[in-house]
């Protein structure tokens, strides 16, 4: 499972990198090229986002990528096929990131079954809090898949503990209020928050939202296990094309 993979990797690296793509943006061919470049540049885990028409937790960059992927004909079936191919070709663990309606319409059990068959190891579903996720958690557990839960700076300590009890793999710590893509202040306030996260769970911690340069990743060393880079690679790709992604990822660590 993901937790032991992360612990093993952490013996060799001070911090791991998780990157993110929106499948089908700008096209499925380019998406596969980007995955290859990211793996080649040494990322440790990857989030594959299945686009959704109402990505309520995402900021303008990822929102636009979701919309354009859908306009260009991305379907859930096509994303499943893509994920299967990526997981078969590359060694690192892949996770799905998407919104609950995608699972709900697919059928939660069928969705987790497809994940297991395609060797997708976990899922991040930001609009499915543990209180609403009974069926999902059971179906994930039955297939040894990891439901990744989220901490936010607004999460009270008691709730952090409850989330830790149901989370598997690692906890995704949202670095600040707001949506994906905006500027994060890597400051003592963030350190205090990550301390609180650390005390609440023994699961590895991933930190995302606003991580975009080497200094940000350096800041997180010793405070978290995984740095998550999302919007920044999409921005870079929009500007310079998929070819620029590999060098960028290499520059982060």
């Amino acid at each position: 499972m993901l937790e032991s993979y992360i612990h093993d990797r952490r013996k060799e690296k001070e911090i791991l990198l998780m990157t993110h793509i929106v499948m089908g943006y700008p096209s499925f061919e380019a998406s596969m090229e980007i995955v290859a470049a990211m793996v080649d540049a040494g990322v440790d885990l990857m989030e594959l986002q299945i686009p959704f028409s109402e990505p309520i937790a995402d900021g303008p960059v990822i929102l636009a990528a979701n919309q354009q992927a859908l306009e260009r004909g991305a379907t859930v079936d096509r994303c499943m096929a893509f994920a299967r191919e990526a997981a078969a070709r590359f060694e690192i663990p892949f996770l799905f990131m998407t919104y609950y309606n995608i699972l709900y319409r697919f059928g939660v059990e069928a969705f987790t079954q497809a994940m297991a068959e395609h060797r997708i190891r976990g899922a991040i579903v930001p609009d499915l809090p543990p209180e609403e996720g009974g069926e999902y958690m059971a179906d994930m557990a039955a297939r040894q898949l990891d439901p990744i839960y989220i901490y936010a700076p607004t999460t009270p300590e008691a709730r952090m503990k409850r989330i830790a009890d149901v989370g598997r793999g690692f906890i995704y710590c949202v670095a600040r209020k707001g949506v994906t893509g905006a500027e994060t202040d890597f400051s003592s306030e963030l350190t205090d928050y990550l301390d609180r996260c650390r005390r609440a769970t023994r699961l590895p911690l991933a930190v995302g939202f606003g991580v975009k340069r080497r200094e940000d990743v350096d800041f997180l060393k010793g405070k978290a296990d995984i740095a998550v880079v999302g919007s920044q690679t999409i921005r870079l790709m929009d500007r310079e094309g998929p070819g620029a992604v590999g060098d960028f990822v290499r520059s982060l660590r």
Binding site: A57, D127, P129, E132, P153, T154, T155, K177
Partner: peptide, 9 residues
Amino acid sequence: AYLPEILVA
């Protein structure tokens, strides 16, 4: 209440 964690509080 299908809320992102940030809004639960």
